[in-house]
Simulated scan of single mutants.
Amino acid sequence: HTLPIEHTNMFPVEVSCNGSHPTYSEVSKIWLAEPLIHALTSDHEEEVNVTVERKKEHDKIIILNCLDSCYGHALDKLFNIQRHLDHHAHLGLVVIIQSSMRNLVPEGVSEIWELDTPFKTFEHRIKGFDQLVKTRVLESKEAYLSRADMNLDYSLLRIPLFVKHNPLRFDKLYEYPARITFILREDRFWLTNKVNHFLYLVARKLGQLSLIKFYFIILQNRNFRKLAKLLVKQYPDLQITAIGIGSPGGMNRYVQDLREPYQEYRMHEDERYRLYSESHLIFGVHGSHMILPSALAGAFISLHQDFKIPHFSEDFIPRHSNPQRQAFLGRFLSDRNSPKAIASHIKNLFGALYSMEKTKF
């Protein structure tokens, strides 16, 4: 029986040791219950290097497990550090993370356990990891396990604590030349055509996406090129940057293309956060690591695919206490929107900022 922590606080799972008699919510079947049961009952174990960094010695600890096969879920778990530093300062905080998130861990934690492996590895058991945790618990005088709450109130989140940069101030949106940052990945695509959408879903379903993704990359790059050309025509001094995991190329002269392969991408995290915090607007497809950029940039436009509608609001962090300002500066649109339609949204956003100046009652 799962402990009341993380997502299993809302969606508990029960199963016999041999995998029989499973009990779980149908809502959590595909993304939580079935993968968990498979990991528990499978003989497969992953070999992963674990690096333990002890910053402070504590005999009373609280363990925060931030491991998850989904980056967004892992990030929410990581944000629990703020609560523990604020309210459990008497305990040593042990944070367990995937290696690419190491730079997000703020000062004040006692230990960092870093696992250098892809996120998808955490769909399986990690060889020897259970014993590592038990050994650390037995070394301590008192040991607690964090609830790792997933339903966080983002309005209380102090983003600079994690990314070391302040979000762009609202009044900076009036300063020109403006900067727009495109966020691209080679496994999330902006496809405006129904036929291409259908082809993408079929390839994804059959596990053949890698064979034809070059075609979708060409289409996506073309859409971003068109958008950049339309925007520069409207704003000649506009600065446009493309950031993401992938190979640079396929853009036009209006775009500074800073895309990188994954290994290089990991090394320049702080520079990306700086660019996001200087961006008037970020633009990308849902699932392209838009969460932290949305908390740093002045505004964002997130494109969602139809099958992502149930999750469209999970890929951002709200910045503004004024609901109208947040709705104006944070837009969720279908990926069927053409470059021309997106350009119209951006023109409206930059041209009607004055309407967001509100007088208090």
Rank of each mutant, 00 (worst) to 15 (best):
Q208A: 14
M251P: 00
H90V: 03
R319H: 11
V105P: 11
S146M: 01
T51E: 15
D237R: 11
L161G: 09
L238Y: 14
H280W: 13
L75W: 05
N18I: 01
L292E: 04
Q305W: 07
N80P: 04
P236C: 06
F162M: 08
G287I: 04
C17Y: 08
L145R: 07
E114T: 15
V27N: 09
D257I: 05
V137A: 02
Y273V: 00
I243W: 06
F214W: 15
R336W: 06
I180V: 13
Y215K: 12
L75P: 03
I62K: 05
K56Y: 13
D86P: 01
R204C: 10
S344A: 12
V285S: 08
I218R: 14
V109K: 03
S100G: 07
D171P: 01
E114P: 04
V48C: 04
L184N: 05
K229N: 14
M101W: 02
I159M: 13
V50I: 13
N103D: 15
D43M: 05
S28C: 12
A143F: 02
I96G: 02
E47K: 10
T23A: 00
P339K: 04
G92A: 09
R266Y: 08
A74L: 03
Q98T: 14
D237S: 13
G92L: 03
L75K: 10
Q98Y: 05
L32Q: 11
L104C: 11
R222T: 10
L91E: 01
M267H: 14
I309V: 10
R179W: 00
K229E: 15
K127V: 01
I61P: 01
E107L: 08
E357R: 15
H21E: 10
D130Y: 06
H90F: 08
D116K: 01
D76K: 12
A242R: 04
Y254N: 13
H21Y: 11
H90Y: 07
A343R: 08
F328T: 07
F361W: 09
L209T: 09
L93D: 02
V95G: 01
T117P: 03
D68K: 02
H345N: 11
P4V: 08
S334D: 06
